[in-house]
Each structure stands twice: as structure tokens, then as C-alpha cells.
């Protein structure tokens, strides 16, 4: 005799009920936790921006952000101005950090849309910092980061993160030994043109002593993630160059 669970009608019914129950419960969970998750993401953005300008709780080796309880206060202390650059227009906006780069980049595919570029201007110990957000592609998924520059366009600090790079290899872009190498690097070449910073396998400079070679040492086994970082810097930072060049003069 055929088992009850082998019948087609039972199978279909089971599938329908299962999809409904699972879908509904996941949707319910996701919606009820959404507020909390969004809040976490917002604070994380502030932590990342502050990290790039050197406001963090780092000890010798590890990455440590300003604690989530303090970050909102510290953010308003250190970030003195947030602006949105749109072509030649520069407008101030206190919520510029909430702009979603992914959405902006998708919208800018239409020729009529002028992309909004958020820029965060901070001040630490009297010196101004210009922090540019970036977003690009790694090996498996999105990578993003923040790069802070002084007015001579020398890198003061960076923060990188990723969605799903390989643990132990590409995922190490958010580790100190990689990020710290960027500090002090120049983004302009000797002729004062924009060159970005390459993540190089062949620059033979493991102690990172040459700061004007527009390159840092790559991570072994993470070629595509490293190339993604270099491409992200080249592509996203270039869009800010018309504005950033005016700072130098």
C-alpha cells in the first residue's frame, strides 16, 4: 500500500504549508528586528568613519572601534561638517552619512542623474580630515571602506570591510596589518596627477617604507580582493578629485 506521505496531494499540501510557515515566520522575525538592525548599521557607519580618521580604541594589534554607547557623541564632536557634492554644487547635510552608495551608483547609470557624493569633514587636534566613502567588488561580494585624507591628499587612515570574502585570505582586508599600510601613502603621483593606491604583489616593500610609490603590499592568497580594493580606490576616489584638488590650492 502506498504510504500516506507519498501521495502527490500530500506532497503539494506539505510544500505549500511549509513555504507559508517558514516564509511568514522569517518575514515576521526580519520585520520585528529591522529597527534594531538598522540602528546597529547606522552606528557602525559612524564607527567606521571615525576609525578612518584615527578616532578609535585601537591597541597595538587589534581593530577596536569607539564603543557604540559613545559613538553618536564622538561623531558629532569630531565630524564638523558633512557635505554632498553634486557636480559643482556643494551642499551641507547633516545626514550625508546615511546616503547609500549602492543606490547612488545604480541611479547614476542613467545619464540624466547627477550622482550625490557624500564627504565627511572632520577635525582632530586642529587639523582637518577629509573622509571619502567607497564601495566596490571583492572576490565573492561587496567590499567597502572609508579613506581619510589631509589637505595635501596624503592618506591619514583607512577602514575596509567586506560582506563575504574568504576567511583567512580576502577577509583580512579589515585587519590592522593591511589597513595600517595605507597610512601616509600618497594618492597623487610625482606629477601631481591622481594615481590611487595599488595593492601590489610585486612592490617588494613589506615594511612599507616607500610612501610615494602609490602602492601597498598585497595579502598572499587574496589577489582578487586586493585588486578590488585598488579598483575601488581608483574609481570612487577619482570622482572626488575635482573637489579635493581645490583643497591643495
Amino acid at each position: 500500500m502506498e504510504k500516506r506521505t507519498d501521495k502527490n496531494s500530500y506532497t503539494i499540501l506539505f510544500a505549500v504549508i511549509m513555504v507559508f510557515v517558514v516564509g511568514a515566520s522569517l518575514a515576521f522575525l526580519a520585520t520585528s528586528l529591522k529597527g534594531k538592525i538598522d540602528e546597529n548599521k547606522r552606528l557602525e557607519k559612524q564607527q567606521n568613519i571615525l576609525y578612518a580618521m584615527g578616532v578609535n580604541d585601537n591597541d597595538e594589534k587589534s581593530v577596536a572601534f569607539i564603543s557604540t554607547d559613545n559613538v553618536a557623541k564622538e561623531f558629532s564632536t569630531y565630524i564638523t561638517k558633512q557635505v554632498i557634492i553634486q557636480g559643482d554644487n556643494v551642499t551641507e547635510d547633516d545626514e550625508a552619512y546615511l546616503i547609500d552608495l549602492k543606490v547612488e551608483s545604480a541611479k547614476s547609470k542613467e545619464a540624466s542623474y547627477q550622482r550625490r557624493l557624500p564627504l565627511f569633514i572632520g577635525e582632530k587636534e586642529g587639523a582637518p580630515y577629509y573622509i571619502v566613502p567607497m564601495r566596490g567588488k571583492g572576490l565573492w561580494d561587496a567590499i567597502w571602506g572609508y579613506i581619510s585624507l589631509d589637505k595635501n591628499l596624503v592618506v591619514q587612515g583607512v577602514f575596509f570591510d567586506h560582506k563575504g570574502e574568504t576567511p583567512g585570505l580576502g577577509a583580512n582586508i579589515n585587519q590592522r596589518f593591511f589597513m595600517d599600510d595605507f597610512t601616509g601613502e600618497h594618492i597623487l603621483n610625482q606629477k601631481e596627477n591622481f594615481a590611487g593606491i595599488a595593492v601590489s604583489k610585486s612592490n617588494i616593500d613589506p615594511k612599507n617604507e616607500r610612501k610615494t610609490d602609490n602602492a601597498v603590499d598585497a595579502i598572499a592568497g587574496a589577489t582578487i580582493t586586493g585588486d578590488g580594493i585598488a579598483a575601488m580606490i581608483r574609481k570612487d576616489l577619482r570622482m572626488y578629485m575635482p573637489y579635493l584638488q581645490t583643497l591643495k590650492n
Partner: peptide
């Protein structure tokens, strides 16, 4: 679990568990 779609059901169970934990 209907035997004809048991693999799919297993997949859904593991995916759901993982997503719940992640959320």
C-alpha cells in the same frame, strides 16, 4: 516529510535555522 521533496525540505530547514541565527 514527503519522501519526494525531502531534500528540498532539508535544505529549507537548514537555511531557515541559519538565517534565524544570523538575524
Amino acid at each position: 516529510i514527503p519522501s519526494k521533496i525531502r531534500i528540498i525540505v532539508q535544505l529549507i530547514v537548514v537555511a531557515t535555522l541559519v538565517i534565524i541565527v544570523d538575524l
